[in-house]
Nucleic acid binder design. Structure first.
Lengths: 341, 341
DNA sequence: CTGAAAGCGCTAACAC
DNA sequence: GTGTTAGCGCTTTCAG
């Protein structure tokens, strides 16, 4: 019942071979080390029969590898991150890796603590949605030859592998779509986070607006307030103070949620006249009434690319090779962004 | 830059003390072991100055403790599990534990693999949303004196600690609420999973229906089809074949999503006449039109109780003490379940 | 082809 | 009060 007492040594003793032999066989190096087929079979059968699995901690101490990967996100309970997590998880396990998820709240200190902690845990690699100020810490990991892949955003001046999407183009496309559908006063609601993905989305919007000769209206909500009453109030004010607004483009899914909530609470009829588009898709937007048009990030591809890069980094043990992937987001046109009558 | 080369031994050498002394101080046993304040300070200052953190793998091998907890859920990308994960994560880290999340897809083999894997990783404890057939495996963990807390469901014949909610009562209350609002033909849509939480929800519904002298209509969708086209078709059929239905009670959040999607696609006007209530709340239901009434599980309390129990188990190192908690779900009445005109 | 033995870095019993 | 040292369970070099 208590299998934890069985050691590799016990197996060796039981089968009258040395621990070395058992270890080789367990690690699939039997052939390579020219151990007789007979012995290999004997060991494999026995190991199988008692369902032996070596102690991973001891293995890690000896090899320096833990077969653990860290996936650090802003908030693991956010749909976008949770979905990617789920995809990464499957790939990782199929390759013999475990995944430690953690949430950094987009906060530098917390990110640093976590990186520090996991470094001492000797994790094999990091997949990180970085907060704004941890460039140095990422740099350090790479210097120490620990595989790192960034996601969703990156530091332009830092040579790292990353997987991002074409925020600028996608944002421009979405804005243009609104313009083409007859909207003339389009607001852009975003956070005050000065990270590249947000800035690119803003730029894409502004570019499209400028090209159409329209007036841009931007609301930046402090990151801390995005999910609070205060955030909703700010959105609400925007509409009361700018009666001419006929469409809005939200830069992230949680802002859209706040926005929809505000509309429902304070001005329900607005939902039928306002053009709406959001960055990041989710189930809610698909089945909402009206259905909400969205710039959908290719979650599956993102997860797959992240793990691809990570597994290559792990295999080649060459942290300096860079792979930088920019995926295309898909504009999913639903009812909320179509021309209103 | 490369801090990983510094060992506890190096610190001892540098400061002219023994490794024992350093180890004691690092583990906060300085006072207890009567090491002079002066030496303690010297060590602490130095350790601080070079930002030394001991190798956790070596520590784990030696102590048998990894300070890692596993949280195994059906699907980490599901809102319900992701939210609890986020709550647990915070508590765990504040107590010096890390959390490994994993998804078992409510599948026994996968659960077993995962349990096996993590046992060999020597994790300190398991918080598990168990699939139906892993009673034996859970039992084994407990026999091996590994702390286990179950969540969302449990095995009635198995003595384990767990945190669940009052499914039967909550379900009965929700059904009664529909009845009180004039609905006479209420369907119950659930999965074919024969686990206690689902059965209790079904029983609660049937009890309320029976007491009111109404007719029960139950649709059980195979678990594998719940998120697919097939599941939506089954729901759709239910309504075409039972024209008299005037309300529906979904037993989980993902079924509700499928249901809302079906309604939107095939019969949009239904949304305004049908009474709707769902088990499990989420943001979508709050801001949907009409807003969807929900039986909300107290996510925060669940997370907190889980960690409370786990931390106690860990502290007392007594796996046999049981703590079984049943929390109350809250019926949140919104527009979808109110009397229609 | 197989076995002995030296660690991986840390903890803690024991000795002084 | 502080230092010596024997492991925790495994991998892998080197000798035979």
């Amino acid at each position: 019942m208590n299998q934890k007492k069985i050691l590799l040594k016990d197996i060796a003793k039981k089968l009258n071979v040395s621990t070395t032999t058992v270890s080789f066989v367990l690690n699939g190096k039997g052939k390579e080390k020219k151990i007789s087929d007979e012995v290999i079979k004997k060991i494999e059968d026995y190991v199988e029969s008692i369902n032996f699995r070596p102690n991973l901690v001891a293995q890690s101490l000896r090899t320096g590898k833990t077969k653990i990967l860290v996936f650090m996100v802003e908030d693991i309970s956010n749909y976008f991150f949770a979905k990617i997590a789920r995809i990464i998880e499957d790939i990782a396990y199929s390759k013999g890796y475990k995944i430690l998820f953690c949430s950094n709240e987009n906060n530098d200190d917390r990110s640093r603590d976590l990186i520090n902690l996991f470094s001492k845990l000797q994790v094999d690699g990091f997949i990180i949605i970085p907060s704004a100020g941890i460039k140095k810490d990422i740099e350090n990991l790479i210097k120490n030859n620990i595989p790192v892949v960034l996601c969703d955003r990156h530091f332009p001046q830092l040579k790292t592998s990353y997987v991002v999407i074409n925020n600028y183009e996608a944002s421009k496309e979405a804005t243009t779509h609104l313009i083409n559908n007859g909207f003339k006063n389009i607001a852009f609601i975003t956070t005050d986070v000065r990270q590249i993905q947000m800035l690119d989305r803003l730029k894409g919007y502004e570019k499209a607006i400028a090209e159409a000769g329209l007036k841009s209206t931007v609301l930046q909500i402090p990151f801390a307030d995005t999910n609070s009453e205060k955030g909703r109030d700010m959105i609400s004010c925007l509409f009361t103070e700018n009666k001419e607004l006929d469409a809005v483009f939200f830069s992230t899914n949680y802002l859209t949620q706040s926005g929809l909530e505000m509309i429902k609470e304070t001005n329900p009829s607005l939902i039928n006249t306002l053009g709406i588009i959001t960055f990041d898709d989710n189930d809610l937007f698909r089945i909402y009434s009206p259905s909400i048009s969205a710039v959908a990030q290719p979650l599956h591809q993102i997860g797959q690319e992240l793990m691809n890069i990570m597994l290559n980094l792990l295999k080649d043990n060459n942290t300096n090779q860079l792979k930088q992937v920019t995926l295309k987001a898909n504009l999913i046109i639903r009812n909320s962004s179509l021309r209103k009558n």
